[in-house]
Amino acid sequence: MNKEEKKQELAARAAWMYYVAGLTQQDIATALGLSRQVAQRLISSAREMGMVTVNISHPVTRCMELAANLQEKYALSLCRVVPSAGLENEAIQQMLAVEGADVMAKFIANDSPQVFGIGSGKTLRAIIDALPWLERPQHQCVSMIGAIARDDSGTRYDVPLKMAEKMQGKYFFIPAPLYADSPEDKTMWCQHQLYQRVAERALNADITFLGIGEVGLGCPLNAEGFITDEQVKALEQQHVAGEMLGHFFNHQGVRLEGELDTRLTSVPLCSQTPRNVYGFAGGAKKYAAIRAALTGQWVNGLVTDEDTAVKLLAEK
C-alpha cells in the first residue's frame, strides 16, 4: 500500500468515526494516535476526495479483508465488518446500525415480493432506524419472536413493525409471550391457528435478520423481564455463551435444553441452519455469543466489527 492509499484509508476511517459514530475530532485523534489537527485534516480530506455523500463510499480495506477471511473461515454467504479499532461500544453500535441498514436496503430494493423474518433487540432496532424510507409495499415483515414479557408488557423493541412501516409493507406478529407459563401453556399458544399461520410464514421467509445476544445478569432478556436472575444463573452453570430468539447455546454452539426451552414460543431455529439467517452483533461483550453462533452455524451471514473479526480469525 503506497502513501496515498494509506492516506485514503485513514481518511475513510476518520470519516466513519466522525459522520457515523458521531465522535469528536479529539476522540478520533486519540483513537488513531494522531494530533487533533491531523484528524481534522483527514475528515476534510474525506469530503474533498468524495468519500462522504449519503454514506461513506470508500470502505476500509482492512475491514474488507477481514470480512472476506471470516466469510471463508465460517462458510458465510455474506459478511461485513465495520471499523472499530480504539472505539467504545456505543460508537461501534452506531456503525453496525449504518452498515446493517445498507445490507437490509439491498434486499428491500428487490422488486419481487420478499418475506423478511425479523428478530428483536437494540441492535436491530438501531438498524431499522437507520434504514431509509423505501416504498416496497409488496414485501412482508414477519416477527420471529413473541414480544410479551412476564409482567404482560410488550417489548420496547418491536422491530418488525418499524421495518414494515419503513417499507410500507405488511406486518405479521407472533401472538404469544416469549416464554409461556408452562409447557402445556406453550402447547396452547402454539396450536392456535393464527400462531401456526404466522410461524409457517416466518419459517419460509426469504431471509431472516436476527440479533445475537449475550447472556448474563443485566443482559437484555434479563433486564426486560423475560428471564429471572435465577434462570440466568442456571444458564451460566450450563456454560451458556449466547442466545438468538431465546434459543440458548453453549460455547460450542450446541443448543442448551432446559426448563426455559420447554416454554419458548419463538419460531424454531437450529444449528447448521439451511435457511438464510443473517446475524448482526458486535462489541467485546458479545464476542462469546458471536463466536458460538458461528461455530454452531446458527447464522450464514454476519455483520460485525473489526476487533471482533480479528479475534475470531485468531481462534483456531
Rank of each mutant, 00 (worst) to 15 (best):
E5K: 05
Q8R: 06
A11K: 00
A12F: 01
R13Y: 01
A14K: 05
A15P: 06
Y18L: 13
G33F: 10
V52S: 08
V54T: 03
M64W: 01
Q71V: 08
Q71D: 08
L78I: 14
E88Q: 04
Q93I: 03
Q94Y: 15
G100Y: 07
G100R: 04
M104C: 12
I108R: 11
R136Y: 11
C141Y: 05
V142A: 02
I145G: 08
G154K: 10
R156D: 15
K166M: 12
K166Q: 05
K166A: 10
M167R: 09
Q168V: 14
Q168E: 15
P177I: 11
P177W: 12
E184V: 06
K186A: 09
T187M: 14
C190Q: 09
Q193R: 11
L194A: 10
A205E: 00
E214L: 10
L221Q: 07
G225D: 03
F226I: 11
I227D: 02
I227E: 02
E230Y: 11
Q231Y: 15
V232D: 07
A234L: 09
L235R: 09
E243P: 02
H251L: 10
T262N: 11
T265S: 02
S271D: 11
P274K: 07
Y278T: 09
G279A: 04
I290W: 00
R291P: 02
L294T: 02
Q297C: 01
E306D: 06
D307R: 06
T308V: 07
L313V: 01
